[in-house]
Structures are given as C-alpha cells and as structure tokens.
Design a protein around this nucleic acid. Structure first.
Length: 608
RNA sequence: GCCCUUGUAGCUCAGUGGAUAGAGCGAUCGCCUCCUAAGCGAUAGGUCGUAGGUCCGAUUCCUACCAAGGGCACCA
C-alpha cells in the first residue's frame, strides 16, 4: 500500500468531484466495457439503503440489450471488479473509489466505497477553499428580482417569502460562480402618493421622519397611519380629493416641491426597509433598488417600439398587446395594457420596460423573478411580449420563480384577528422574544450581551428556516408557534449541531492533524462522510431547480448524520490516529454547516 | 368556459420510474458520573385524492374525474 497521508497545507481552488460522480463514471466505464453498444447510457447511480450507492442501469437497459437484467448487472459488476483488481497496482489517487460490488434483487448493482476513497474526500474538501464545490454557474450574469416592498407601506408576512427565497438563491448562485445582480423592484410610484404628499403638506406638524419618532415606531409605520388618515379625508372631503388629484398631476409633471417631498418619502421608507433587511440578514441595500419610478422615463419609448412593430394595437381607446397563446373568459386573447384610455401607464408597461432594461442594459444571461404564484399569467404575457418584441431571445433564460401564498390557520390568506396583515417586524420580535426565553433557560454561562445576540440569531434563523424549508410552489400555512419552535427540523437544530462541533473543536486545540486514509470508518463516520460529500451536488441542484428547500433538507440530514456520529464516536477521548480523523470530520462538518447556513442566510453562532 | 397550482401519517411537510414510502410536531415509554439533553432511542400511526393507461416495475409518467386554492382589460 502506498497511501499517503493528506497534509492540509494552505487552501487550494480545486473542485472535488463527489464520490457519487466518481461512482457514476466508474459504472459508465464498466457499461462501456461490458456492453459497448450501450456506451453512454445513464448509469442511474443513487444512494442506497443496502450499500453506499446502487446502480439501477441494468434494469433500464435490459430490454435494449435483449438480456435479463440480472445477467446484465452481473456483466457490469464483473467489469467493475476488474477495475478494483487493477487498482491495487496503481496510484490510489486515480483508482476507482469502489471497494466491492454485488448484484441483488432483479438487477440492482450495490456499490460500497473504499475506506481510502472516503477519507480522501474528507481531506481533499478540507484542503479546498470552497469545500471542493465547483462553479457550474461561472460567469452567468443573473438578475434576481426579489422583495419589492411598497414605499410608505409596512413590510408584512407577505414579503417574507420573496425576500428570503430571493436572497438565498442570490447567495447560492453567487457561490456557484454566477455574477448576481440583485434588483429590488420597489413600489415607489402611483396615484396614492398624490394623496399622501398633499396630506403631509397640509399637516406639517405630524412626525414621520425616522429621527423624529420614538423607538419602536418606524417611518413606514407612521406613513402607513398617515396614509390611512389621508384616505379617510380623501373619501370624506371632495375638496381635499380634488387637491390630491391635482397633486398627482403635479408630481407626474415633475413639480419640484412635490417631487422633493416624494423623494423624501422614498428615502425614509428605504431607511425602514434597510433596518428590516439588516435584521433579517438580507443582502439587499439601497444600491440594489430599481423601483417602478426608475423605468418611468422609458415608458413612452417602450410603447412606441411596440406600436411601431405592430405588436401593440389600439383597443377600446387603450393600447394593448394581445397574447397569441392565451384567451380569457370571453374566448378572446388576453391583453397586456401598455397604455390606458386616459393615456397613463400601468405596471404592464413598467414590467416590459424592466425586462427590456435587464436584457439590453444589464446584459443579463438569466433573470429570476421571485414573485407570488398568482402573477404567473402576468409574467407569461410579459415574457411572450418581450419575445415578440425581440428583446428576449434564446440567449437569455427568464424564469418566474413563483411561490405559494401564505395562509392563516383557517386556510385563508393570512390576516390577524383585526383583519390586518401581520407586520414583519412584529413577527421577528415575537420569534426573538420566544428564542430569548429558551436561550435564557438553557444558558450555558453566557453573558447578557451574548445571550441577546444568540436569541436574535436563533429567532431570526427559525423564521427564515421555516419559510425556506418548505417547497416553494405550495401555499403554506403560517403558524407562529411552529415557526418559532426550536426542536426537531428547525433552523435551531442546525445551529445547535454547529455549536456542538465548535465546542469539540475548541477543546481539541490544534486541529490540523493529517487524515489517515487507511482507517476503517465507523458506520456513523461513513454515513457522515457520505453526507458531507454530497454538499456540492446539492448546491448544483439548487442552482438548477431554484429550490432552497433542497438545501434545507440536505443540511438537516447532515446535522442528523453529525448527531449520530456525536452519539456514537467520542472524539477527544480516543487515541491517534482515530482522534485526528474525527477532528477532521468535525472540522469539515462545521465548515459545511456554516457555509450551508450562510447560503440560507442564517447565522451560525459558536455557542448557544 | 379556459388556464395554473395543490391533494402522501391526527397536524405541518419531505420524497423517488425501482428493493420495506420518510421526517418533524403531537401521543406513550425510556436515556444526562461521559465532547452542550435546543439532543438520542423505542412504540403507535398510511388503500400516497379516485379510476383507467404506459411499463418488467407507478406514490412518481400520461389521460379522465373529484376536491381545495388561484388567475383571466384600464388596481398594482
């Protein structure tokens, strides 16, 4: 045996192919050898309950090969065994990762990875800067449109999913090498501002700037209240309603005083949003804002282009783009309304200007709209129109990353008892408050400041994990108690696993011992290594499917695998070289969990 | 009327063209001289909406139906 001990010297940039990929290659090669006419067929390698992996290719290929699946499997298995035979004479670095092959059932090929290969993966990932994860999204310029709160309105639970899912996808795609451009499509334009500006002007005494308000009241909260007051006056007082309408016209015409006041409202609102984003650990900043008003200057040009191309046509006094694919209840094509009868522009036009800008000016290769599923038809129409206009071509990939509605316990869209939506800040306060109770109760000699910080991290993490861990497309039932529960499959479970590892590593002292690849791993070690090794494959999948819940599921499985290891394999009390290998496993587990949590946008405290 | 999404354990949800469909919560019973018990083990709980079809094999793919939710012109 010429096994070399893997020394971790500085980090390299190497991608480390997973064992599963290596096994796929080995099985593919074996298929080519045993059955040249079937070369290139999918080896159908999966994780297995009966071995480390199983290859199901024989079952699928039997008909094409006109052989019994079991015979076919036996031939492929023989070819795989020949590789194992030669491996003892060659450098282990390039040999097959497979140690044994058996055929069972109707033609399943069960594959066990070699002990050496398992430990080699651990060492190689520890030595790599990105845990050996590759960059399949390298260089892909990806616009991620998410969050999109409305100016002068409070963010509520309805904004949670778009904000958190969009942020997670930004992080994952960025980690996989994409050039991510975050875009916050603020609702910062519309007739409601006329009313609000007029009201503020007529009541100069009311406080609403963030530096005038008492703690616990946000600018948007104050503006929200003022907006409702304005609305009430608008409905009750025809003279005020007239002045408000004139104010809309003035604002749209660029009247200086009105525009200044509008800018002030936008800036104050963005200040409030940034407080929420910071608390949530969301990467969005004011630099990512490109709201509806940003596209205003281009709307006439966009409409002109569509009209000139004959795509937009006059209908009942309005200007519309009629879908060639979809019809409405009357059997007629469904329109996008690019100019209303009164000459105004709605959000159809804004969204067309937006997609044109993202392709033409931002030069996006991929655009993701993280928006409520109810807008599916709208985006279908926008994408269709953009194609017909020639803005959107096959060079760009545009996806509506839709997600389900947040429902209350009654299965209806979520509202509080009073009929209002739940404010996002209130939800976060509740979650952090509950977390503080638990942290206080369990506190392991933490000072008050540390306790506060951990309560914050656990509470916010719980809310985010609850949202990210369920599949995107389904509606989901909002339940504060479940969201802020800290046992079972929750964000806290992952954080807790991480703190336990950190505790071991603190006590282990210098953790840079080399990995001994000749040791036979304990079953719990084997399971943990196989879980750790699948990190990159999981991320690649998330990058393709745009489904963060797969990452949550993976990290939960990983944390469970670590917990099993923790229960079964003492680290500090065993002798070398076992201790060194277990410390290495702890290090890789901690780094993988930390990185995984980071990609979910969840903090990974070292103690709790 | 047409289109989209969803029906899996009491509840909330994963899951896959393949071997015995999983997890958490809730319930019952256990486990801290031992690296953090926010943990672990065990028991209980299922005709994977219904009916057909494709397939060696379907909870997974296809069709129809049933049920729930959503969407389809001047609000965004």
């Amino acid at each position: 045996m010429r096994e070399k001990a893997w020394e971790v010297v500085g980090l390299n940039e190497h991608e480390v192919p997973s064992l599963r990929r290596q096994v796929e290659t080995a099985v593919s090669d074996a298929i080519s050898q045993a059955l040249p006419e079937l070369a290139g067929a999918d080896p159908v390698v999966r994780r297995s309950e009966h071995a480390d992996f199983q290859a199901n290719a024989a079952l699928a290929l039997a008909k094409r090969a006109r052989r019994k699946p079991a015979d076919l499997a036996a031939s492929v298995a023989d070819a795989l065994r020949r590789d194992i035979g030669t491996d003892t004479d060659t450098d282990a670095d390039t040999g097959t990762p497979v140690a044994s092959v058996t055929v069972s059932g109707p033609g399943f090929i069960n594959l066990v990875a070699s002990d050496t290969a398992l430990w080699r993966q651990v060492a190689a990932r520890l030595a790599s800067r990105h845990l050996g994860v590759g960059t399949p999204q390298q260089g892909r310029r990806t616009v991620v449109d998410y969050s999109g709160p409305n100016i002068a309105k409070e963010m509520h639970v309805g904004h949670l999913r778009t904000t958190i899912i969009g942020d997670c996808l930004s992080r994952v795609l960025g980690f996989l090498g994409a050039e991510v451009l975050r875009q916050n499509h603020l609702g910062d334009w519309g007739t409601q501002f006329g009313m609000l500006i007029e009201y503020l002007d007529e009541h100069p005494d009311v406080a609403w700037h963030h530096d005038e308000l008492s703690d616990g009241t946000s600018t948007v909260s104050a503006l929200n209240t003022l907006y409702r007051a304005a609305r009430a006056v608008f409905d009750a007082d025809p003279d005020f309603a007239d002045r408000a309408r004139r104010r809309v016209v003035a604002l749209q015409a660029g009247d200086e005083a009105s525009v200044t006041r509008w800018r002030e409202i936008v800036a104050e609102s963005e200040f409030a949003f940034s407080e929420i984003y910071q608390r949530l650990g969301v990467l969005l900043t004011a630099a990512d804002s490109a709201g509806e008003s940003f596209y205003n200057p281009w709307l006439p040009e966009v409409v002109g282009e569509l009209t000139q191309a004959g795509i937009a046509v006059e209908s009942d006094g309005a200007l519309c783009v009629f879908s060639a694919e979809i019809t409405g209840p009357d059997g007629e094509p469904v329109p996008l309304m690019v100019r209303k009868t009164d000459g105004g522009f709605g959000y159809d036009t804004t969204d067309l200007a937006t997609i044109r800008y993202r392709i033409r000016d931002l030069k996006a290769d991929r655009i993701l709209y993280v928006v409520d599923a109810r807008q599916a038809l709208h985006f279908q129409l926008i994408f269709e129109a953009a194609r017909r206009a020639g803005w959107l071509t096959d060079d760009a990939d545009v996806t509506h990353v839709s997600y389900g509605t947040v429902l209350g316990p009654d299965g209806r869209p979520f509202k509080t008892r009073s009929g209002d939506t739940v404010k996002l800040m209130d939800l976060l306060d509740t979650a952090v408050g509950r977390a503080r109770e638990v942290v206080t109760e369990k506190a392991h000699d933490l000072d008050p400041a540390e306790l506060d910080q951990i309560a914050e991290q656990a509470g916010i993490g719980a809310v985010k994990y609850a949202d990210l861990s369920t599949s995107r497309t389904k509606d989901y039932t909002f339940d504060v108690d479940r969201m802020v529960s800290f046992s079972g499959n929750t964000g806290v479970y992952l954080q807790y696993a991480h703190t336990r590892i950190c505790s071991i590593l603190r006590k282990a002292g210098d953790a840079s011992a080399p990995v001994d690849t000749t040791l036979a791993p304990h079953p719990a070690e084997r399971a943990l290594i196989l879980a750790l090794d699948a990190f990159g494959d999981t991320l690649t999948e998330v990058g393709q499917t745009l489904e963060p819940h797969r990452l949550c599921g993976y990290l939960y499985d990983l944390a469970k695998a670590f917990t099993d290891f923790y229960e079964a394999c003492p680290v500090l009390s065993v002798a070398q070289p076992t201790r060194g290998n277990r410390v290495a496993l702890c290090r890789l587990s901690a780094e993988t969990l930390r990185r995984g949590l980071n990609l979910l946008g969840i903090a990974a405290p070292e103690r709790m």
